[in-house]
Design a protein around this nucleic acid. Structure first.
Ligand SMILES: [Zn+2]
Ligand SMILES: [Zn+2]
Ligand SMILES: [Zn+2]
Ligand SMILES: [Zn+2]
Lengths: 162, 162
DNA sequence: AGTGGTTATGTTATTAAATAACACGGACGT
DNA sequence: ACGTCCGTGTTATTTAATAACATAACCACT
């Protein structure tokens, strides 16, 4: 994130995620799924978890190494992997990625459809449950359309930015 | 569109829009709104209306002039305008644009939230009504989030591509 | 008609985002 | 050890979008 189309207080722009716990859980999930949480994948997830809000791929690229940047394919591959594992979500309308609020885990491997409230102003995102997408599914079924993935993104202003 | 990750029949990839009627209606809408449907805007809308499915900005750019390509800002500005007028929708997950199925008109100026069923295979899109977004609005309200725009995109396979 | 404000376009250049293609290397089962 | 699969490293290219600034058209008012 980091946009600030305003001058007001943004002290609410802080999320508290237990990064270490998330990384451990991710490791366990991968092992259980027969996948490998390799170094670039781990590093990418770590950066996204530590970032305050949705993170651009090129921000990951820039901060990948302490010294210099990573090569784009390294990061894009990791992002694809993490998304497929249900650990992060891609925000289509922002070209950005954010850690899932309720990530897949050992007991619960699934990649779920998420909805986001995305603040225009501070860039903060809130992941909410997607209700009634059954309606979309229903219409799709009527049309013979097989739904694989639904993107729901609500853009606007968050409480403190209004 | 035009992707064809398959070899089967795509004769369903044809839409029938009365382009002239749409252009006339758009002209009337703009007049009524105190806006101007200028040449680049008209041309851009015409191309999108004539295209079979969501169209990339750079495809508009390439086909803008009979001779050569247009300059990107020319087209991007027109696209923004058309979107704001409720004549086209941007498909975030495809970086593409499609004519609205039920565009704003003289009687009914609004830009509505749309949902799309996007076929992975043939690239065709179907615009459907978005039901129950009230749920999202409701959750947002609870969080004090002011929703300005909701993106809903369902990706998968259409009837004939399954 | 002239004038000034506003809106839209033309143009050049740059930035941002994502992928193609291919070589290399490590993990793993046999 | 061998071959296969999967993931990575690397180079280059493609695709998407915007910044910045100059010019021109439109409009309202004099
Ligand atoms: Zn999630
Ligand atoms: Zn905010
Ligand atoms: Zn529409
Ligand atoms: Zn199809």
């Amino acid at each position: 994130m980091t946009q600030h189309a305003c001058d007001h207080d943004h002290s609410h722009d802080t999320t508290t995620i237990n990064v270490d716990a998330r990384l451990k859980a991710a490791e366990a999930l991968c092992v259980a799924s027969g996948e490998r949480l390799t170094a670039p994948r781990l590093r990418t997830y770590e950066l996204i978890l530590g970032n305050n809000g949705p993170m651009k791929a090129y921000d990951v690229i820039d901060r990948f190494h302490p010294e210099g940047a990573a090569k784009p394919p390294t990061v894009y591959r990791a992002l694809s992997f993490l998304e497929q594992m249900g650990l992060i979500h891609r925000i289509e309308s922002l070209n950005a990625f954010v850690a899932c609020a309720t990530p897949a885990n050992v007991d619960h491997h699934h990649t779920h459809t998420a909805a986001f409230l995305l603040c225009d102003c501070c860039g903060q995102s809130e992941e909410i449950a997607t209700l009634s997408l059954a309606d979309i599914e229903h219409q799709a079924q009527h049309l013979g359309f097989e739904v694989k993935h639904i993107t729901v993104e609500a853009k606007g202003r968050c409480k403190t930015c209004r």
